[in-house]
């Protein structure tokens, strides 16, 4: 069975480190996804599901998010079963309710895409590809087309896990 899944492709060459993708991600995953001001100013700040990194010399940048691996290390290592991969959409998810904050996924993810230890929330967060939106919030917010939404065809097994 092949499935068409979405992926966000980052063109680091054109990432300018503005952080608008991260902000859009925070807002999209907040209680007020329609208002940046309300999302950011009501209660505690929403946690982004991705990060923007800058090189030590401040010359290059990278918008980092989960690559939605087909055989994800985070799912293998998760002690609580919070990290799962949906075989239909190919999206790797972490269930906030189940996560116990052991950071196993953080030490397992070779992309450095798991958000958690720095947030003070005691939960791991990661990109969910904003499946309910036409475009992932980060892609829609990037002013320089450094983030591109791709529809990728992947071959999937017929069995669901989880």
């Amino acid at each position: 069975m092949t499935a068409v899944v979405r992926r966000v492709e980052a063109q680091d060459e054109y990432c300018m480190g503005c952080g608008l993708c991260r902000l859009a991600c925070q807002v999209a995953h907040s209680a007020y996804p329609l208002s940046i001001v309300k999302a950011m100013k009501t209660g505690s700040r929403p946690v982004p599901r991705m990060s923007v990194e800058s090189s030590a010399d401040g010359m290059s940048f990278r918008s980092v998010r989960c690559l939605q691996c087909e055989d994800p290390e985070c799912v293998k290592i998760c002690i609580s079963g919070a990290a799962t991969r949906d075989e239909e959409t190919g999206v790797v998810l972490i269930d906030e309710q189940k996560c116990v904050g052991c950071w196993s996924c953080v030490i397992a993810c070779p992309e450095g895409a798991i958000i958690g230890p720095g947030t003070g929330r005691g939960k791991a967060y990661k990109c969910d590809l904003c499946l309910e939106r036409e475009f992932p919030a980060c892609v829609a917010a990037c002013p320089n087309r450094a983030l591109i939404l791709r529809e990728v065809e992947v071959v999937e097994s017929t069995t669901r896990e989880g």
């Binding site: 290390e73 996924c105 953080v106 397992a108 070779p110 992309e111 450095g112 798991i114 230890p117």
Partner: peptide, 14 residues
Amino acid sequence: IAINHVDNMGIITG
């Protein structure tokens, strides 16, 4: 070994 400041440590595991 990483104690605190553990963000991104998976890169090293990789």
